[in-house]
């Protein structure tokens, strides 16, 4: 790890001020489960590290009407074990229960995961698949506009994710095919149905990060059943390929995981 200037603000405003001061050379430390390994390998070298762990009011889970609010510093384990989440969006709790391993879930946060937008992360699929809104210290960003590319988001300089708002769906589920080695999503498909709207979001597979599948969504809007996806396929072009999975295999797995997610959402 390279040396850095360590800061521990108490408020979001202070954190934003420090981030602005760092002028693009600052990084926010949330759970650190991705950032710290990256810094250890000297692949990231922020001049300033702004630790959000002492900032008040950034974590917590609350159901407000038909929307589930989750604070950015809420840990995966807390989402997974929350009675509120399990009741409102069981598919989201199950997704959180499958991130990393128990020790990682005890540190990693939803805000950190979303802001990092790792192409193999799980939460971006839930955000996109549920049509979530990402709230920052400056504005509200629809998930459809938030994830702009691999490790890239709509966040501007000095902008900090403070919470995520998930509309509560009628049905939702996530199916992940983990990379055998890292256990990150090699393909993860989140399916959400709210009213007549159906969303299918895919993580792990796309070269530009999480993406939606309009054809699958249209088929499921007609009839929300795994069988509706029969005959549909995803082109391998533009999907990731590595030693564990070729683009063709990923494309195939998207179809399988999507069907399984739909069945799961239907309680089958």
């Amino acid at each position: 790890m390279y040396a850095f200037n360590y800061q521990r603000p108490k408020t979001v405003r202070q954190a934003a001020g420090l981030l602005a001061k760092a002028g693009g050379d600052g990084k926010l430390l949330a759970g650190g489960q991705t950032l710290l390994p990256t810094m250890k390998q000297r692949l990231a070298s922020p001049a300033m590290l702004i630790d959000l762990n002492q900032v008040d009011g950034m974590s917590g889970i609350e159901l407000k009407g038909r929307n589930l609010h989750i604070g950015a510093m809420t840990k995966h384990a807390d989402v997974a074990n929350s009675h509120v989440v399990k009741t409102a969006i069981p598919g989201l709790a199950a997704l959180a229960e499958g991130i990393g391993d128990p020790a990682v879930r005890n540190r990693g946060t939803i805000g950190g995961s979303i802001a990092n937008n790792d192409p193999a992360a799980d939460y971006p699929a839930a955000c996109l698949g549920l049509g979530a809104t990402i709230v920052t210290n400056k504005r509200k960003i629809p998930a459809d506009e938030f994830f702009t590319g691999m490790f890239d988001t709509a966040l501007e300089e000095g902008e900090i994710v403070t919470k995520v708002i998930f509309p509560v769906p009628q049905k939702a589920a996530y199916e992940k095919f983990p990379n055998p080695a890292s256990r990150y999503a090699m393909v993860g498909v989140f399916v959400g149905k709210k009213g007549s709207d159906v969303r299918v979001a895919v993580t792990g597979a796309g070269a530009n990060g999480v993406f939606r599948l309009p054809e699958f969504e249209a088929a499921l809007k007609t009839r929300f059943n795994a069988k509706s996806l029969d005959g549909l396929s995803v082109p391998a072009d533009g999907l990731n390929g590595d030693i564990h999975a070729s683009p063709e295999y990923r494309a195939h797995l998207i179809g399988v995981m999507a069907k399984r997610a739909v069945s799961k959402a239907l309680g089958k």
Binding site: G32, Q33, L36, P37, N53, V104, N106, R107
Partner: peptide, 13 residues
């Protein structure tokens, strides 16, 4: 009271 990976946490934090 929670298990964490001590190689992935800054002591200062």
């Amino acid at each position: 009271g929670r298990a964490i990976k001590s190689c992935t946490a800054l002591a200062i934090s």
